[in-house]
Design a protein around this nucleic acid. Structure first.
Lengths: 203, 203
DNA sequence: ACTAAATCGGACACAGACGTCCAACATAGA
DNA sequence: TCTATGTTGGACGTCTGTGTCCGATTTAGT
């Protein structure tokens, strides 16, 4: 649950808190990893270190293993997106409208993390799902609500809707990243496709 | 363009044709690779050889490099799916109906290649697109036709629709593979979601 | 100014995978 | 039956990347 024992800042348990530069380093590593992963989901630690302006060994001070770093990166990103979505009040108003609201909010936040797509792609499905739990957490109730009111099609499982929604969003991110669709055309297209996919009645 | 110089069967250029066992070996390798990739998109050559009941070195007789093998596998799979779809006459009848027809046909054929998903996932986007050209080739005209007749929403680029369709199909394959949705519920769900995503008017 | 915490830099061992090579054996096909 | 074509088994070199270690040096914080 806890990110890693590297986040022992919030728990200055007896000992003195971490030094400010350590804090900074860790932040730069996460930042660099995010950057690097955007262009190549298989970047090695050396490259990440280079981008962070640090030495490879230093990374291991903060993250015991490559995997733990990856986890930290994605966890953080997903958490931030989830938080943004939560702030968009998924429980308020008409389901379709609410979904649109939450979706666009999440999408904009996601813009900060082109990387996500790349990393996600090469993750075992189960892992991927586990990671996205924070997002599912309040997307699922919203979809269920919509199914009840008849706003979304209810002849398919919620899980199906969730998976499709996620896939569509990720693909959209990919299209954006590949510059294959005019940037400002994406958001409306995304909304239209998602609502359509969930079988939203046009009001 | 040509798969590899390993397919020199169709061109018995002066020399005598390949021996039957060589033919068989190559087939078994492709088969094994497909299998193996289904469970782990990063299988190593040793494992593929093991499954094929051959020795690692033998693979290199038929495929000069790992990459070439991967290419051969995906190319073949996609070609077969594409062919099946083509046989479903995408140009005939009402666009939405035609799409449904082509889609389910392709989907069933795809069932033989669970692997595709895994491999695709960790491929650079551009490569992925290039590979899927055979599929796009006659899916695109169909979608365009639908946009003209108003069957599909035309306020988004065709490329967008294509990308979404592909993503949805792949995700469905993933759901199937993960046993997360009852098998026989998938096909109708897939059709519904795709048609919805493309904004198909319910006739 | 002093000390403990961090970073540096570079070396190291280790592991997994690829691709090559070759002598011995097996087999298809004429 | 004879021979070219394939396959075997195993060894080998190479490369890439991970994770560890440690002495030397810098820096934060009191």
């Amino acid at each position: 649950m806890t990110p890693t024992d590297t986040t022992r800042n919030s728990a200055p348990r007896g000992a003195r808190p971490r030094r400010a530069d350590a804090e900074r380093s860790q932040a730069r590593i996460l930042e660099a990893a995010l950057d690097a992963l955007a262009s190549d989901p298989d970047v090695n630690m050396a490259e990440i270190a280079r981008r962070a302006g640090l030495v490879r060994a230093t990374i291991y001070v903060h993250f015991p293993t490559r995997e733990s770093l990856m986890e930290a990166v994605t966890e953080r990103a997903i958490a931030e997106v989830a938080q943004a979505m939560a702030a968009a009040e998924p429980e308020r108003g008409d389901p379709a409208e609410a979904l649109q609201r939450v979706l666009t909010t999440g999408w904009r936040e996601l813009g900060r993390f082109h990387a996500l797509v790349g990393i996600n792609a090469r993750q075992p499905q189960a892992e991927l799902r586990r990671r996205h739990r924070p997002v599912f957490a309040f997307l699922q109730p919203l979809i269920e609500r919509g199914q009840h009111t008849g706003a979304f099609r209810s002849d398919v499982p919620v899980a199906w809707h969730m998976a499709m929604l996620l896939a569509i969003v990720h693909t959209a991110s990919g299209e954006l990243h590949a510059n294959r669709v005019p940037t400002d055309a994406i958001e409306p297209a995304l909304v239209a496709t998602v609502l359509g996919a969930l079988g939203a009645r046009p009001e």
